[in-house]
């Protein structure tokens, strides 16, 4: 006896006959919105003089992460300029910034909800596992169908892949606030909002920042995959290196991603430690 589950047909029918006609318009507008933001930000970053960005980054790393990283930042920026990948780097940064903002805007409140409600926590956990472990190529396809090619589906798929740490770490951070402190807050007559804003969020800020840091790192690691659906930036440099068997091009683009990753990681970690 042979049992066949027609998941493939179902999915296709669902996507083609219902999802696209019904919500396509909505996604179209969403797509336009995200596109405007991503392109605006990209243009702005490319328009800014590289020297200015370099100086700002060095100042930030000096303040937040120490001299060693500041020197590394200088070398890294010189590297990006001298291999002529500066505009690509800025495109990648723009996509990461937008995706990370989306992740934080959705992830942190979701994490707060999950920390407050066992029901929500139980629902969210498998969803997060799903988002993190499902091979990203699987949702690249519907992302293309819904959002077309380019930066927008890249932002969306990066958002899906990179949000879980923000949710998880926010949830963890709030759950880890010692009971005597939440009890004290309650005993003096705090409302739930006051307790959240004045006690729980300040107490868990470091953990939340660690989650945001992880979100950014995951977003960077999506750069190459996202370039397969037409996202511009360092990822597409690496991709064309791969497809042309051009080892040198692949390495220059790959090193660019590493440089960005280290600088952004140290800066966001530094922010977390300062809190």
């Amino acid at each position: 006896m042979n049992f066949y589950l027609p998941l493939e047909e179902w999915t296709n029918t669902f996507v083609n006959d219902w999802l696209l006609p019904t919500v396509g318009g909505f996604f179209g507008r969403l797509s336009d919105g995200i596109e405007t933001v991503v392109e605006g930000l990209t243009d702005f970053l490319i328009w800014l003089p590289p020297l200015l960005i370099t100086v700002i980054l060095i100042a930030l790393t000096l303040w937040l992460a120490g001299k060693g990283i500041a020197v590394f930042t200088l070398i890294g920026c010189i590297y990006l300029g001298s291999v002529e990948l500066w505009p690509e780097a800025m495109m990648t940064v723009a996509i990461i910034i937008v995706a990370t903002l989306l992740s934080v805007v959705f992830g942190v409140p979701l994490g707060i909800l999950a920390s407050k409600s066992e029901v929500i926590n139980r629902i969210i956990r498998p969803v997060l596992d799903f988002m993190q472990t499902l091979p990203s190529f699987v949702y690249l396809i519907p992302a293309i169908l819904l959002f077309g090619l380019g930066g927008v589906p890249a932002v969306i798929s990066t958002f899906i892949f990179a949000t879980p740490p923000s949710v998880r770490m926010t949830n963890l951070g709030i759950r880890q606030v010692p009971t005597d402190i939440t009890e004290a807050s309650k005993a003096f007559g705090s409302t739930s909002w006051q307790m959240l804003l004045k006690v729980e969020l300040p107490m868990s800020l470091q953990t939340i920042m660690a989650g945001v840091n992880q979100t950014i790192m995951l977003a960077l690691s999506m750069a190459v995959i996202a370039s397969m659906i037409g996202a511009p930036g360092l990822g597409s440099t690496v991709l064309s290196g791969i497809s042309n068997v051009n080892v040198g091009l692949g390495l220059t683009g790959g090193l660019g991603i590493v440089v960005l990753a280290i600088i952004i990681d140290r800066i966001t970690q530094g922010i977390g430690d300062k809190l």
């Binding site: 010692p178 005597d180 009890e183 309650k186 007559g189 006690v199 107490m203």
Partner: peptide, 16 residues
Amino acid sequence: TRRKKLGMVFQRFGLF
């Protein structure tokens, strides 16, 4: 009632 009538002191202090 908690605000106006009941103050509380904790074993582990519960300071922020």
